[in-house]
Design a protein around this nucleic acid. Structure first.
Length: 361
DNA sequence: AATCCGGGGTC
DNA sequence: GACCCAGGATT
């Protein structure tokens, strides 16, 4: 029999009082958000995936549209993959939706469309990590599981004065242990959501509103006047830059060549106007390059507005060329010749929506 | 443990 | 620009 190690943290605040203050504040002050209308585990799950690294205000319209398009777990499981991807267009981190649809299919097949209450079963689904497991199980099923995200680490680092670097992966476990000791078993949902709501509304990164804080009297960092030094977070990655030509190839019927990106990697399976890295081909060799790769002769070339697009880890410099040709043909099933109207049905990353808007005029 | 994976907002 | 955001998968 394996010995259970507890690794309990010494917590000196008044835990029952802290729970009450936090939960009472949350019940009073929580925002009226669409995914808080009920406890439907599917809706909670969808909202938690959308909210990963994404602000509430951004998510709201996407959530409404998504639930209206795919109201149930079965609807999402059986939906067309491209249509689902289109519903995520502009949200970013597109692997989230691929993983979610994959996970939802697994729930339909293995668990009879019932989202499992077992943290191990739910947590093993694609795209469901430690945070999402705790969030969905506590909010939808009232289970006392920790849901530690960036908000929770910031809030608890201040209240308990935890100085561990929250950029390090293993630090999350410290906060999970803290939550296990703090969480209300009476109302785990309001407790977890209260911590996150507090982080979003009061205990903000730069200028926390400590004077309005419902748990100010429990906050050790505030008592010591060090709340702004927390949380401790190292990090910073220098980001690379890449420069491309974007080829808007237009044939004599005003159709445009669109191609689908590979199934893996950046912007997987999204559609775009053909891109060529400038390292591959210099500007004066562009015309022969296009003839070789797309089997067409350029007639006129027009420079459109260049686009700078910043990702979290890359910056794209896009030199956009509108090139009129007599005939252009799709060469494989990852390429299509499409009218302006048809392009609107395809999932494009924001960088290429910017290109699309230029040719709309 | 470090890197990849989007996009929008703030200061 | 730097940093932040209801993170997870991959290497």
């Amino acid at each position: 029999m394996k010995k259970k190690q507890s690794n309990e943290i010494l917590i000196t605040i008044n835990i029952p009082q802290f729970r009450d203050d936090l939960i009472n504040w949350f019940e009073e002050e929580q925002r009226d958000l669409p995914w808080r209308k009920n406890q439907d585990p599917y809706r909670v799950w969808v909202s938690e995936i959308m909210l990963q690294q994404t602000k509430v205000e951004t998510v709201i319209p996407y959530f409404q549209r998504f639930i209206s398009n795919f109201p149930t777990i079965e609807a999402l499981a059986s939906a067309d993959e491209q249509e689902v991807l289109k519903s995520w267009e502009g949200l970013g981190y597109y692997s989230r939706i691929r993983n979610l649809q994959s996970a939802v299919k697994e729930v339909v097949e293995k668990y009879d469309a019932k989202i499992p209450e077992d943290p191990d079963k739910f947590g093993n689904l694609k795209g469901v990590g430690p945070y999402t497991t705790g969030a969905v199980l506590s909010i939808a099923y009232d289970m006392p599981e920790p849901a530690v995200d960036g908000n929770v680490m910031r809030v608890l680092s201040r209240i308990l004065v935890i100085q561990e670097d929250i950029a390090k992966a293993k630090t999350r476990k410290i906060f999970e242990q803290a939550v296990r000791q703090l969480i209300s078993h009476n109302n785990p949902s309001a407790f977890n959501q209260g911590l996150m709501e507090l982080g979003a509304l009061i205990c903000t990164p730069r200028n926390p509103s400590c004077l309005l804080c419902p748990v100010q009297e429990h906050c050790i960092a505030y008592k010591k006047g060090i709340e702004k030094t927390l949380p401790v977070k190292t990090k910073k990655t220098k980001q690379k830059q890449k420069t491309y030509f974007v080829l808007v190839l237009e044939d004599n019927k005003a159709n445009y060549l669109l191609e689908q990106r590979p199934a893996e990697g950046l912007l997987a399976q999204m559609w775009q106007f053909p891109m060529v890295e400038t390292k591959e081909v210099s500007e004066n060799l562009l015309i022969p390059f296009i003839k070789e790769r797309y089997h067409t002769d350029c007639q006129t070339i027009e420079y459109l507005q260049p686009i700078k697009h910043v990702f979290s880890h890359i910056t794209w410099e896009l030199n956009v060329l509108k090139i009129k040709c007599d005939k252009v043909k799709a060469l494989n099933h990852h390429q299509r010749m499409l009218s302006i109207e048809e392009i609107g049905d395809y999932p494009l990353p924001v960088s290429h929506q910017k290109v699309y808007k230029q040719i709309l005029h």
